[in-house]
């Protein structure tokens, strides 16, 4: 009989020792951040819904996304388990918010952690800066990704007041006053009734 259980990992003693090690040194998981998670979920849901609506209401957003083929999906997601906001281009040329979306969309913009997501979603940092510092990883077709990023800038401009947009974009896009505010009112009125489309 071995003088200690480590010498016989397959023996009975090892099982006893494993159990006691497990008890003394249990798996450790960091605590959840339910408030942050809820905020990110709500904010991403709003961005997803606003993106789909803006594509129908604003010609510049529509033009930027015109080359995306039917069925093309893209998502903004917090690594590793979400939340996530995905959009898919329909056969009718209309963009639809589809909730969490497919596991592997054609373009995935993935916040590397909750802190990176919150810095962008609370408008304390620009997505470009977070991207440049590896807080946001992008995978997928590059021209499509760049078009989506430009369209996202337009959506933010349509959705948010100028002083906030100036913090998150390098330059505020030049959208005619009447159109910008007309689309903004339409967005605000439509957002409460916009839900995800089931896939």
């Amino acid at each position: 009989m071995p003088h200690n259980a480590y010498e016989s990992p397959s023996g009975r003693g090892a099982k006893n020792m494993d159990a006691s090690i497990d008890k003394a040194y249990p798996d450790v998981q960091p605590p959840g951040r339910p408030v942050a998670r809820l905020y990110a979920r709500v904010a991403l849901g709003l961005v997803g819904r606003a993106f789909a609506l803006a594509q129908r209401l604003d010609p510049d957003v529509r033009r930027e996304l015109a080359d995306l083929p039917a069925g093309f999906a893209f998502a903004l997601r917090v690594h590793p388990r979400g939340p996530s906001a995905a959009l898919r281009m329909g056969a009718d040329g209309k963009l639809r918010y589809v909730g969490f979306g497919p596991e592997a969309p054609e373009v995935l913009m993935r916040f590397q952690n909750m802190a990176s997501a919150l810095s962008v979603l609370t408008f304390s940092a620009s997505a470009f800066e977070v991207y440049a510092r590896n807080g946001l990883a992008v995978s997928g077709d590059l021209p499509a990704t760049m078009a989506i990023i430009r369209a996202l800038g337009l959506v933010e401009t349509l959705l948010l007041p100028r002083f906030v947009v100036r913090r998150v974009l390098k330059r505020v896009p030049d959208i005619p006053f009447l159109r910008k505010h007309g689309v903004r009112v339409a967005l605000y009125l439509s957002l409460p009734f916009a839900g995800p489309t089931k896939e």
Partner: peptide, 13 residues
């Protein structure tokens, strides 16, 4: 050029 990924890292739009 505007579809090139490196433009995202440029300081000015």
């Amino acid at each position: 050029a505007i579809d090139d990924a490196s433009i995202a890292y440029n300081p000015a739009e």
